[in-house]
Design a protein around this nucleic acid. Structure first.
Lengths: 201, 201
DNA sequence: AAAGTAAGTGAGTAGTCACTCACTTTTAGA
DNA sequence: TCTAAAAGTGAGTGACTACTCACTTACTTT
């Protein structure tokens, strides 16, 4: 990100480090991001990193916290402005796509953390994020059943899983093509199909 | 896998190595699988690995070839026995779920390879596999539109992406819970929703 | 301007990684 | 039964990794 601001206060340096990791994850395998690479991107010595984080795991934890806070805030904001539960689902869908289009490294980091064998802090944070996401989806789907927008015969948990899967399908397509714009343009069509899957007849 | 067969002929040792990597990927982050770990699992010295593969990249290439061959063969077999295009899609869905339930490391390896920054042989193989998969899906969906099973208004490419996404949603759920059985039990419900998304009214 | 403190650095360390090589053991064919 | 080739090994190597530490530089407060 910014290059030439030296001697940042600790809080800002931590924030800059997190932003740098998110940016690097958009370019390379998150598992292969080294502390040296992070430092180089910030025009800092590698040793400086460890003045602000006790370990590399702590960096990943901070990054996953950043993702959880920002993503959930945007989703809640999007859902809040919607008139009906189904409209809220669509708003969340768009907001999520917008978020990963702006930060292409995020889904890669999520998958990377979830795949870790050890039970790291970052992995727990990723799990928590997904659990909270799932909660919100299930709540909205339940309410949409009550308003009659979603078919009552549809299983709520399955519908929530398909919502996430629909996004993942788009993400995978963009991973293959390497293009972020395709994500945004393909999103409306994907949600239209998802709506068909759950909508009442 | 098997432990005590020493001095295997080269072909069998290569095959055993691939099987070992697939098994290890079910237990840990594929990116962290070392040649030492592979050798240890086979009760072999690490140096022996390099008598059969010129590099670690070559191992990954062989593994991805194994996956591509076996998976596509099973999918084609499943599709072949189906009466209609939509039935073929369902058979492919089941066969795919069965495959990843039997080899839980496979989706992790796929994602791991696709995330690589460098253009490795394994990554190219993963890309090719997905492209072939996509082809088959689009062909079946097109034919299902002709028979009237699938709504002609549904976009073929989007429907193919949602098919893959539906499976990924299930895989992600099982990654979170760590349980393979949940994959198999949740699959029929997930396909039922997918069918609703694309079926003709 | 002096001094205390926070931020940053150069030069390390121990450990791990993929990969090599001179050498030994096993297998298979005549 | 002998032998050559194939399969496997022990002991390395250089490159890279997260992390440390004694020391320096910059900022802030008085």
């Amino acid at each position: 990100m910014q290059q030439t601001a030296r001697h940042l206060p600790a809080g800002e340096r931590r924030a800059a480090t997190v932003r740098t990791v998110v940016a690097l994850a958009a370019e390379q395998n998150p598992g292969e991001i080294t502390t040296a690479a992070i430092a180089e991107r910030m025009n800092l010595s590698q040793a400086a990193i460890f003045r602000h984080f006790p370990s590399k795991d702590a960096i990943w934890q901070a990054v996953m916290e950043w993702v959880a806070e920002r993503l959930l805030a945007r989703l809640d904001e999007a859902a809040g402005g919607a008139a009906t539960p189904l409209a809220a689902l669509e708003a969340i869908f768009s907001a999520h796509i917008e978020f990963v289009a702006a930060h292409p490294g995020v889904p890669r980091m999520m998958f990377g953390e979830l795949q870790r064998a050890e039970d790291t802090a970052g992995k727990r944070m990723a799990r928590t994020l997904l659990a909270r996401y799932d909660e919100r989806l299930k709540s909205l789907i339940t309410r949409a059943k009550e308003t009659g927008e979603v078919d009552a015969a549809v299983d709520t948990a399955t519908a929530a899983a398909l919502f996430v899967g629909t996004i993942q399908g788009l993400v995978m397509q963009s991973l293959l093509s390497g293009a972020a714009p395709s994500l945004r343009s393909a999103a409306p069509g994907a949600f239209a199909l998802y709506r068909r899957a759950i909508a009442a007849a």
